[in-house]
Amino acid sequence: MNTYQSIRDALSHALVRDDTAVIFGEDVAFGGVFRCTMGLAEEFGRERVFNTPLSEQGIVGFGIGIAAMGHTSIAEIQFADYIYPAFDQIVNEAAKFRYRSGGQYHVGGLTIRTPTMSVGHGGLYHSQSPEGFFMGAAGVKVVIPRSPIQAKGLLLASIRDPNPVIFMEPKILYRSAVEQVPIDDFELPIGRADVLIAGSDLTLLTWGTPLYHCETALHMLASPPPQVSRHVPESLRGAKVELIDLRTILPWDVETVVESVNRTGRLVIVHEAGLTAGAGAEIAATVQKKCFLKLDAPVKRITGWDTPVPLQYEKFYIPDAIRILDGIVETLIY
């Protein structure tokens, strides 16, 4: 399966296993913009998979309401860029529901799916990465998968988690990768990072689409192509870099990241959102506090620029393999 197919498969399992589960959003009944709900309305009926008015605040508010009444509520925001009208409902209502009642009632059955990150030409209204805006919203979880297997396992875990979850799907990955995905029902743990490559010289931390740019950068570090070879000192080409996919942005896996940085002494964080107040800022502050005496270099952040995502030059906005390679080299030789 590719990623959109694995998400569709996960949603089908959720509807089969849970009679209270419903899916709703703008255009989901005919499959959605990215076809992640294709055929579900015909299979499960339009009382369980249905379109809503074009109102993100209304979509999330409705989801909170039916989740509070005991339903499994799976809402879709068509693009993460459009989640801002629902910000009040998410941060002031969904996140605080359990707390304000002293645990007597909750909206743990609410999952908000939304496509995120850049596609190369989406520009200022279709390529944003708003995950960092929710890091201060205690009471919600934020999950970003990197691949078809991850998408299915993490989505099913999100739907069944006892807390409201924002599940952000990197849209450029919907059709860019294929994996052998188990057709059975399975879950992957929320709140736990995934160490893809073990290393001892530097920790490279990312999530979503930039993970693949990080892999390319590591290949270039080991065997630099002619046009960049002069920028990579010979002594660094055997560096062992530990690559970590954070997967869950809130709550993020402090233990795994801190353990890694205490071993490697160096941390490079990569994300598509802008530098200022991005998720990397919170991670860097925590690592600086917990790993201060073990750090051999300042924590490096490689991110989008502090501008709106541009239309014509979007590919210059996102952190590509060359920028990541430069950051790794700079941190290793510090």
Rank of each mutant, 00 (worst) to 15 (best):
L293V: 07
P310A: 11
P162V: 03
I74W: 01
S229I: 14
Y4M: 09
G63N: 04
E43G: 06
R323I: 09
H231D: 14
R146Q: 12
G199A: 09
M69E: 14
L243R: 02
T256V: 06
A284Y: 05
H271T: 03
A86Y: 02
F133E: 09
Y84S: 11
Q312H: 12
F97P: 03
A95Y: 01
F167G: 10
N92L: 09
V309E: 08
V181F: 01
D27K: 07
G153T: 00
Y4E: 08
A281E: 10
G103T: 10
R100I: 07
S176W: 12
T209K: 12
I324F: 00
G136F: 05
D201Y: 00
P298F: 10
S12A: 13
K289I: 04
F50A: 11
I149C: 15
E282Q: 12
I328L: 14
V254Y: 06
A198H: 13
I149W: 09
E234S: 13
R35S: 11
R100L: 09
D185C: 14
L155H: 04
S260A: 15
T256F: 03
K141A: 12
T286Q: 13
T303V: 04
I64G: 07
G65N: 04
G122C: 12
S118C: 14
Y82N: 05
I74G: 08
P145N: 12
L204H: 01
T206L: 01
R146Y: 10
S235C: 09
L188V: 00
Y313A: 15
V60C: 03
V91A: 08
L154A: 10
L221P: 14
H231N: 11
I322K: 15
S12Y: 05
P233E: 08
I190R: 08
K141E: 10
S158Y: 01
I249N: 05
D18S: 08
D185F: 15
F79W: 03
D296G: 05
E47K: 13
V299N: 06
L124E: 10
L40Y: 06
V140W: 00
Y334G: 15
R35Y: 02
H106N: 15
F50W: 05
H71A: 15
M69I: 07
D18V: 03
I244C: 09
G278I: 01
D201V: 07
V195L: 02
C36I: 15
A157N: 02
A321E: 13
V299H: 04
R17K: 12
L124V: 13
F97L: 03
I77E: 03
P145V: 10
N2Q: 09
I159N: 11
N262V: 01
G327W: 00
I112G: 05
G61H: 02
A239Y: 00
I197P: 01
G132E: 03
I90T: 07
A68K: 03
R146M: 12
G65Q: 04
D9R: 10
T216P: 00
P298G: 11
Q57N: 13
G265D: 04
K96G: 01
E330V: 02
K294Q: 12
E179V: 06
R237A: 12
K289Q: 14
